[in-house]
Amino acid sequence: MVTKTEESQLKNLEIQVDNGGGGAWEFLSLVRKLKVRRSDKVLKHGLSILNDPKQRSTLGSEEWTLYEQVAVAAMDCQSLDVAQDCTKALRKRFPESKRVGRLEAMLLEAKGSWDMAEKAYTSLLEDNPLDQIIHKRRVAMAKAQGNISGAIEWLNKYLEIFMADHDAWRELAEIYLSLQMYKQAAFCYEEVILAQPTVPLYHLAYADVLYTLGGLENLQTAKKYYASTIDLTGGKNTRALFGVCLCTSAIAQLTKGKNKEDKEGSQLHSLAAKALEKDYKQRAPDKLPQLTTALKSLTLSS
């Protein structure tokens, strides 16, 4: 999870490294820790460390972690020569390693030789049938080939065994979303929220899915989850604030004429609108008129 402080730290380090201010190793470590995808920069700065024997020797055993990181980044950037060299260096150092075997199979994937990669993964799985990462790689491979239904099938099989893997649930939710299968995606997000109830972004994603599904009950639940996102972020998530406003107006439209208004809801709506206005005034004053017209149209339609 990337928190606000870590995000600004990463941004500062990135600028510093890009301008040649040093701290490349710290940047690479932070990228690894936060699991962000900066493959081009990792490749550039990681290679410059690896090509400098003096810097490399100061890393000690961390050197091999860097080799792995650079190899994966190189695959992501399609610099297959570099990836191959890194994998070879690792293979020389760890001749028996399964982890290097996985890396070699990933290299095959990056080259596009799916059959060989599949074979490599199968043989790795024979040695250790419960290797989670290899199971996940097979899902990713199906996805990369455009075989989305196959990926869903693999992932469902995987989740039957490893139900506590929230990353996999999130991936499944995202795949379902890409296919516009919102009901299934909502179920997956429920699992993710159960596993990590303090992450506001999952609440937000779940609320988005419910709002997209529509219907009075879903809209009311969506509003609750938008509200919980606001609660967890201290009102600093603009999307959640907008979500509350949209949900309120949609609910009001559905219940029009039934005259069953709850006062609490309208209060939440106006508070969210106020928070939005304040936020826009502070950070983007020139967009404020647009915001006010948008909010007005929402209240007019209700």
Binding site: M1, V2, T3, K4, T5, E7, L34, K35, V36, R37, S39, V72, M75, D76, C77, Q78, M106, E109, A110, G112, Q132, I133, K136, R137, V139, A140, M141, K143, A144, Q145, D167, R170, E171, T198, V199, P200, L201, L232, T233, G234, G235, K236
Partner: peptide
């Protein structure tokens, strides 16, 4: 506090286990 600067989560990490290389890059 969940909404303090140190604890407020602003972005999710990519799922590195599901990374695919067959992309527009």
């Amino acid at each position: 506090l969940p909404d303090s600067e140190e604890n407020r989560i602003v972005s999710l990490p990519v799922n590195p286990d599901f990374m695919i290389f067959n992309h527009r890059g």
